[in-house]
Nucleic acid binder design. Structure first.
Length: 313
RNA sequence: CGCGGGGUGGAGCAGCCUGGUAGCUCGUUGGGCUCAUAACCCAAAGGUCAGAGGUUCAAAUCCUCUCCCCGCAA
């Protein structure tokens, strides 16, 4: 079959590579335009583009999807099927209807849970112990199409969004190839989602990383995990912004108001929460790199009793 | 030419503005204390202060350039 692949970030790379290694032919790739990134204003190519170049497969980086030009270019590739993993754009009907076999999407959750742009992160933030990959036939909604295959994987207690995503992406690649193969054989029955069970996993915003100390210690741990490596969970020590990269709930009763710092022996820094104590393990302050709390305390004088929270003037 | 912070013994920081024998917390090593210890006490080792040039009697500190790192913003 002739397949067009659409995808953008690192998460999409295993899907593309799995397709390239499969019996089907990837005749074209669509990815997002290079974007300014990093400290200067250098343009950074999306990971999928790099793979496309290395594989020597023609690719497009349209600024806008809903144009006659793009649709024409897509049609010229004569795809039997379009495979989509984390492309980052909504496909409208003219594209969805283009390939005879339809458009297959790889989604990083157990649909109908966690529809949307950040399913991996929100699953971790909500403390799920299991997630997975769902392949589906795309329709015009946001991850609402009928499901094809699903595979579950556990979320480990120490997983962050950053450690979980690559594992899911691998499963995604495998499941994508299997899905296509079974579609060709007519050995798969699309199964409508139970829309009543649907939940949303919207794109993460910076503010989603703001730690609410009135929550439980475990809920804060989960937020820290889900916001890593981007955009990061944070709080304020006075006016100074602290990014928290690793934390653990401690089996001790909290002392003081939520957010109160407790400096202990052994170079430890614990914080009272709405329910339980939270020990900070890895921290990053402005203009500095992330470091263990032990290292941080070696060079910074932090007093017990100070409250973390919103920025104070 | 997007804005800003920084590179000081192994780690994290102070000192720089107001030039003049390099300091703090921790780690390491040795010793002591202790039933014992990741705890405590004593001692030691370890730095061409990122690099190059300049000003000066004298530069970590002032000026110029280079390299590297980081935060914000995207």
């Amino acid at each position: 079959m002739r397949i067009v692949f659409m995808g953008t970030p690192e998460f999409a790379v295993p899907s593309l590579e799995a397709l390239l290694a499969s019996e089907d032919q990837v005749v074209g790739i669509v990815t997002q335009p290079d974007r300014p990134k990093g400290r200067g204003h250098e343009l950074a190519p999306p990971p999928v583009k790099l793979v496309a170049q290395r594989a020597g497969i023609p690719f497009l980086q349209p600024l806008k999807i809903r144009t006659p030009d793009f649709l024409e270019a897509l049609a010229a590739w004569k795809p039997d099927l379009i495979a989509v993993t984390a492309f980052g754009r909504i496909l409208h009907a003219p594209i969805l209807n283009l390939p005879p076999k339809g458009c297959v999407n790889v989604h990083g959750s157990l649909l109908p849970k966690y529809r949307g742009a950040a399913p991996v992160q929100w699953a971790v933030i909500n403390g799920e112990t299991e997630t997975g990959i769902t392949t589906m036939l795309m329709d015009e909604g946001m991850d609402t199409g009928p499901m094809l295959l699903q595979e579950r994987i556990p979320i480990l207690p120490d997983d962050t969004a950053g450690t979980l995503a690559p594992r899911l992406a691998e499963v995604g690649g495998r499941l994508l190839v299997e899905t296509i193969s079974r579609l060709k054989a007519g050995a798969i029955a699309p199964c409508a989602q139970d829309h009543a069970q649907a939940t949303m996993a919207p794109l993460l915003k910076k503010e989603d990383g703001m730690i609410d100390w009135t929550g439980s210690a475990q809920s804060i741990v989960n937020r820290v995990r889900g916001m890593s490596p981007w955009p990061g969970a944070y709080t304020f020590y006075g006016q100074e912004r602290w990014n928290i990269w690793k934390a653990a709930a401690v089996q001790e009763p909290a002392q003081g108001q939520p957010g109160t710092i407790l400096i202990g022996a052994k170079q430890s820094l614990k914080v009272a929460t709405g329910n339980g104590l939270l020990e900070l393990l890895e921290i990053q302050t402005a203009n500095s790199k992330r470091m263990s709390v032990g290292q941080f305390l070696a060079g910074h004088r932090i007093d017990s009793g100070v409250r973390l929270g919103a920025a104070t003037v």
